[in-house]
């Protein structure tokens, strides 16, 4: 028996918005410690890694490890039926071929349940090596989304360049060039407004706008985003999900000339 009840059901709706453009389907690996999802996009350019810890749920029970393959467009249709203040429960029997979503309104006057067929997905899991990143940049997530959106008008790629002075995002194309420089903030009233750069060595890498823009669908999950870069390895874009976990996107760089 698997059962996970999330009082802040809106978080699950936001998680769905954060992955559904990138992934058509994904396996939810449910275990005693919580729920994990790891999946590559269709083109195998990026990887999504979602972690929801059991402690973040109001009620969590997982008697046996369970892999639930879900069609994300179907799951998204179902989660759209939940109101933002609904409590969401996911449950499944051991070895079941369906999962049930239960939505409870805050005062319990409306309770809906939706049963969805599971699909068998033969998905490979990738080993993500432990990496000490040369540059770790924290910035407001809305600012990052804005930068990706603005620079996408200029070209298909964004160059991210991190030095001790700060971080520079650049794009170039037919209409011209664009550069956005963010300096590390000295003092801020709210921590979530800060730009922080932790740099061991300068790094410059080039990434496809298309994927960066899809990652920014996670913006409603967290006021801050963390970018980690090292020379010639994938970028990590991480959004914390309150006290429950995180979503990380890994994006392979564009390389060479």
């Amino acid at each position: 028996m698997f059962e996970a009840r999330l009082v802040q059901g809106a978080l699950l709706k936001k998680v769905m918005e954060a992955i559904k453009e990138l992934l058509n389907e994904a396996s939810f690996d449910c275990a005693h410690s919580g729920i994990l999802l790891q999946a590559m996009d269709n083109s195998h350019v990026s990887l999504v890694s979602l972690n929801l810890r059991r402690e973040g749920f109001d009620k969590y029970r997982c008697d046996r490890n369970l892999v639930m393959g879900m069609n994300l467009s179907s799951m998204s249709k179902i989660l759209k039926c939940a109101s933002n203040d609904d409590i969401i429960t996911m449950k499944a029997q051991d070895n079941a071929d369906t999962v049930t979503f239960v939505f409870e309104s805050p005062k319990q006057e409306k309770i809906s349940d939706y049963e969805m067929k599971l699909t068998n997905l033969d998905q490979d899991h990738l080993g993500i090596p432990e990496t000490e990143y040369s540059c770790v940049i924290k910035l407001p997530s809305a600012e990052f989304a804005r930068i990706c959106r603005d620079l996408s008008q200029f070209g298909e790629s964004i160059v991210i360049s991190c030095t001790k002075e700060g971080v520079k995002f650049s794009a170039a194309g037919d209409i011209g060039t664009a550069n956005i420089k963010l300096a590390q903030t000295a003092t801020v009233d709210k921590e979530e407004d800060a730009v922080m750069v932790d740099m061991q060595e300068p790094v410059t890498l080039t990434f496809a706008c298309k994927y960066l823009n899809m990652f920014t669908k996670a913006t409603p999950l967290s006021p801050q985003v963390c970018l980690s870069m090292s020379p010639d390895v994938p970028l990590v874009v991480e959004y914390k999900i309150e006290d429950i976990g995180h979503i990380r996107y890994y994006l392979a760089p564009r390389i060479g000339d």
Binding site: S46, D124, L126, G127, A208, A252, P253, R254, G256
Partner: peptide
Amino acid sequence: KSKQASITSFFKKK
């Protein structure tokens, strides 16, 4: 022109 790398050239299948 730069070329898009694949994520699987960095992370190997388990």
